[in-house]
Structures are given as structure tokens and as C-alpha cells.
Amino acid sequence: MLLIECPHCGPCAEIEFRCGGEGHIQRPGPHDRVSDTAWADYLFYRENPKGEHRERWFHAAGCRRWFNVARDTVTHRIRAVYAMADSCPPDDALAVQVSATGKAGAA
């Protein structure tokens, strides 16, 4: 079982969360000028990489807030947890946090 560090509540068991799929997906617009192909791409096509992936997670049994996670789909190692409005921190910024705290993604 994963231990996920909610940015609002702290570390909680994986069963408290729901994965919302790929993160950082931009809705095409404006709505009156979006082609059928662009709309279908937005609705139905997502990346499914083997390796690091950016995902949206929802803390369903806790604070009921959304946040982003950078997670390796092979090892399930969570590299970063960050707010919905933020972009994923670069690898070198996390290296400083990991060495200082011993935990990836901790501030």
C-alpha cells in the first residue's frame, strides 16, 4: 500500500485517495471553435507511460481536495506532491529536499 503525503493533511494511506488520471490536461477552447478531433483528443486520449507520470489525486476520505503527484508507474515511487496550480518541481530542486529531509517531496 502507498503512503501518500497529502499537502493539506499530511501522510495518509492510499485507500483514502482516488486517482483522477493524467495531470496538467488543458481543456481546448474557445468552445465554439474547437474541432471534433481536438475535442476527442481531450476527452479520450491520455498518456500511459512506463515510468514517471504526472497525475491528479483527490483526498476523498480526508480534506476532499485535489493535488498533483509525480509518480513512477513501475515502482510506484512518489517523487513529488504539489498543488494543483503549480507545475511539477524539477529533479534538481527535489534533490535538495530529499537530501535535507530524507523524504522526497517534503518541504
Rank of each mutant, 00 (worst) to 15 (best):
R27P: 00
P7N: 11
I25C: 05
E22N: 10
C19P: 01
T101V: 04
A106R: 12
R65K: 15
I15N: 13
K50I: 11
H8L: 13
K50V: 06
D92C: 08
A93E: 13
T73R: 13
C19F: 14
D92S: 12
D32L: 15
G51I: 07
R71V: 10
R46H: 10
F17H: 10
V34Y: 01
T37M: 06
R65S: 12
Q97F: 02
R54E: 04
A60T: 04
H76E: 03
P11E: 07
L43Q: 15
A104F: 13
R18P: 00
D72W: 01
A85P: 00
S99M: 14
P7K: 12
H31W: 08
D32F: 15
C88K: 02
N48T: 11
H24G: 07
N68E: 06
I4Y: 05
A60D: 11
Q97N: 11
W57H: 02
L3E: 10
S99V: 06
D36M: 07
G29C: 02
V96N: 10
T101Y: 08
D72F: 01
C88H: 00
A106H: 13
V81L: 02
H8S: 07
L94Y: 03
D41P: 00
Q97G: 01
R71Q: 05
D91G: 00
D36C: 12
R33T: 05
D72H: 09
A106P: 00
N48S: 10
E52L: 11
R77Y: 02
L43A: 10
W57R: 04
P7L: 12
Q97P: 00
R65H: 15
D41T: 10
E22Y: 03
H31V: 11
H31Y: 14
C12K: 12
V74Q: 12
G21C: 13
G29N: 03
V34H: 00
G20L: 14
V74H: 04
R79G: 01
A106S: 02
R18N: 12
A107H: 12
Q97A: 09
G102M: 04
V81A: 07
T37R: 10
T73M: 12
V74G: 05
D91F: 03
Y45N: 12
D36E: 13
L94Q: 09
H59Q: 11
W39E: 14
S87F: 11
P28E: 04
D92N: 05
D91S: 06
R56G: 02
F44D: 05
V74M: 07
M1P: 06
D36A: 09
A100P: 00
